[in-house]
Simulated assay, not measured.
Amino acid sequence: MKKHSFYDVFEACVNGKRYRNRPLSHNDMQMYRFLRAAQEVFKIHYYYGGAYTYKDESLTFGWQKSRFVALYEEQLSNKRAAGRKYYDVLVRLAPDNKCQVCLLGKVESLDHFLPKESYPSLSISPYNLVPCCLGCNGVKSTFKPSSPKRQAIHYKFDDIFSSDWLQGEYDCVNRKVVFSPNTCLYPEGSVAHARIATHMEVHGLHSVYELEALRKTREMVAYAKVEGISLEEHIHSELSKLADNARFYPRARHTFDHWKWVTCKALLASSVFMQSDYQWFENMKRYYLPGEGFEGL
């Protein structure tokens, strides 16, 4: 596996395509050392205290915030700039091209775990850039962690995505699967439970997962009806497929397949759904069609 360094990223952003082979100036090297040190300090803070303990020292050391933000906006994310090569490498770090925030959508951008407007020293740090879908990037906006419990989950630095971090329960009143942090592994009141709740809140994952669970439920009910098999049998078949996928790629069990596991188990655990509510899903329209429009369209 080819490994890229922070120096590679920095040099491409500073020199650009025109001066690709130019040695870095003394001022550039000072900037490089500061930014490299900043990302290492961030990593140390994350492991030993949490992201919320990291303090940006750009102004303290005489660096302008706009200079570091421009490195990202003009040289790293710009499709015509030399740094875009490393932007695309970071995007490709996501397994199965899945967003590393919701673990569901297609990766289309990089999100700053700590917003670059408040933490410019981490604007081009690979440690601070998370492959994500546009939805998660936009919903999160400029959220900043403020305490141990008010931190989102980092896909590289946290171990939560290697366990059953979600649980689901079928809501027979609203006919939907409701998702929440798994209280068996992460009891209410614990920091981990609060962090999962924060992660879901900040990125709007409750509605995202509920909608996907609704679609999956409708799909399974329709398939069972068409094939003339019991719904319970088909849901167990879906779980078997997920288990096969997890044998090929174990991390799938708790990442991009996790919401499916939770959905299937929540439905099987609900006697109300299995005995009667599934009929409501049988009568649902398979596709959403808009009920209004404009003349000529």
Rank of each mutant, 00 (worst) to 15 (best):
K260Y: 12
Y127F: 08
Y48H: 14
G138Q: 14
E201Q: 11
V173H: 13
K241G: 03
N182G: 13
C133G: 08
Q64A: 09
D159Y: 10
E219Q: 10
M220H: 04
S180V: 06
Y209W: 13
V107N: 06
V272T: 14
H258M: 13
A224D: 04
Y170C: 06
H199L: 04
F113Y: 13
K116H: 09
D277G: 03
D171I: 11
T142I: 09
M220F: 05
A70Y: 01
L122R: 02
F10K: 01
R150P: 02
C13M: 01
V221F: 03
H234R: 07
K140E: 04
S5K: 12
G62I: 09
D8K: 05
S190L: 00
D8E: 12
Y223P: 03
L103P: 00
R84K: 12
G189S: 14
T183M: 09
L24I: 11
R18W: 05
S271V: 15
S121V: 02
Q75L: 12
Y87I: 00
P181T: 10
P290V: 14
G296A: 08
T183H: 09
I44Q: 10
Y87V: 01
R175W: 07
Y86M: 05
A213S: 07
V130I: 13
Q30F: 00
G293M: 15
A82T: 05
R251V: 07
Y46W: 15
D171Y: 09
N78W: 03
V262W: 06
T53R: 10
A243Y: 13
L71G: 01
A94Y: 01
A246F: 08
L242N: 06
F10R: 01
E238D: 04
L268Y: 10
S125W: 04
E73R: 11
E40G: 12
I235M: 05
C172Y: 09
V139Y: 08
L76P: 02
A197C: 07
P115L: 01
L93K: 10
E212P: 00
P290S: 15
H254A: 08
R92C: 05
E238Q: 11
K140P: 01
D164P: 13
K156P: 02
Y52K: 04
A82P: 04
G228R: 11
K98E: 02
G62V: 14
R150G: 05
Y249W: 14
S180Q: 08
G168W: 06
R84G: 04
T183G: 08
F68Q: 02
T217G: 04
D56V: 06
T60V: 12
E108W: 00
Y32C: 08
Y288R: 06
A51Q: 02
